[in-house]
Design a protein around this nucleic acid. Structure first.
Lengths: 155, 155
DNA sequence: CGTTAAATCACTCAAAAGTATGAATGGAAT
DNA sequence: ATTCCATTCATACTTTTGAGTGATTTAACG
C-alpha cells in the first residue's frame, strides 16, 4: 500500500481519533451504554472506524497511472531530402540487393520486370520483397513504397 | 464509491466481523480488560477496524485511474503541402471519388480496406482503380502511385 | 425530357503478388 | 574451421489485383 504524503488527511484522521477517544471518555463518565449495550457500542465503533479506514484509504491511495500515448502529428518541411536515408537503411538492416529491389519496386516495376533487370528468377525477387516487407514492417508492396519514401530510404 | 462484485472479499469481511464479535464476547465473559483497560481495548478495536477498512477499501474499491497523456511525435513529411496539382487532375479527368481512392491507394491500403473506408463494395473500388489506371496511363497500382506523386496530384 | 457523367455493383477469368518452407552457395567474421 | 548471413532458387498454395463486360441509379445540364 502506498500513500501520498498528505498532511491534511493525516491530521483529519488524528483529529477523528481524538474525537472518538473523547466521546468514549464522556460515555464512560456517564455510564450510559457501557453496561447494557456494550456490544452495540463496540460494534458502532468498529463500523465507524471501518468507514473511516475506507475513507482514508480512498483519500490516500495513490491513483493508478494509466499512460496513454497520443500520436501528435508534427509536420516537417524537409530542406535536406537526401540526408537521413543511409542510417535508416542500416538501422532496418536492409541489404544492398534488397535496396536495389526496393528501388525498382518503387518505380512501379513488377516482380517479373525486376527479376529480368537483375538477371535473377522471380522467386528470388519474391524472397527479397518478403524480406523487405518484414524489415519495413509492412504487409504490401504499396505500403513498402509509402514507408520507404517517407523514411527517405529511397528518393 | 463503487465496488467490484467480489463475494470472497465480502465474505472475508463478514468473517472478520464475526470473529471480532466473538472475541469481544469472550473478553466480556472473562472480565479481563473491560474495567481496567477499556480505553486500550476500544482503541485497539478502532485501529484494527481502521486497518480492516483500509484493507477492504484497497481490495474492493475500484482503483483510481489517473490518465497521463504522453504525446508521441509523428513526423509527417510535407514538402510541398499546397502544390497539389489541380490542373493536372482536371486534365486527366480524374473524378472526386477516383481521387479519394487514389489517395488511399497511395497510402498503401488494399482494395478491401479502401472499400471499407469508403463504405462501398470492393467491386466498386476495382472499377475506380481500373479507371484511374486508364486515365494515368499505367498498368499497375505501384505505377499509379509513382506517377501520381510525380505529377503532384497526391502528396 | 433526354443525354451524359459519375458512382455504384456483379461476375468471371487471369495475372501478379504474397506466404511458407526448404535448401544450396559463397563470402565474411570469429 | 565453423558459424553467420546474403543471395540465390524452388515448389506449393493463398490472396490480391487487374481486365473485361454489363447493368443500375442519380444528379447535372441544356
Amino acid at each position: 500500500m502506498s500513500f501520498k504524503s498528505n498532511r491534511t488527511e493525516i491530521f483529519i484522521y488524528g483529529l477523528s481519533m481524538a474525537l472518538f477517544i473523547g466521546l468514549l471518555k464522556w460515555l464512560e463518565a456517564r455510564f450510559i451504554v457501557l453496561n447494557y449495550r456494550l456490544d452495540f457500542f463496540i460494534g458502532a465503533i468498529a463500523i465507524a472506524f471501518t468507514v473511516l479506514g475506507i475513507w482514508i484509504a480512498h483519500k490516500l491511495l495513490k491513483p493508478k497511472v494509466e499512460t496513454r500515448i497520443v500520436e501528435k502529428e508534427v509536420y516537417i518541411d524537409r530542406e535536406y531530402p537526401e540526408e537521413i536515408n543511409q542510417k535508416e537503411i542500416e538501422k532496418l538492416g536492409i541489404s544492398k540487393r534488397e535496396l536495389e529491389v526496393l528501388i525498382l519496386m518503387a518505380k512501379g516495376h513488377s516482380n517479373d520486370e525486376i527479376a529480368e533487370k537483375l538477371f535473377v528468377s522471380v522467386n528470388t525477387i519474391k524472397t527479397h520483397t518478403s524480406n523487405i516487407y518484414l524489415k519495413l514492417e509492412v504487409k504490401r508492396r504499396t505500403q513498402a513504397m509509402e514507408k520507404a519514401k517517407r523514411l527517405n530510404i529511397i528518393s
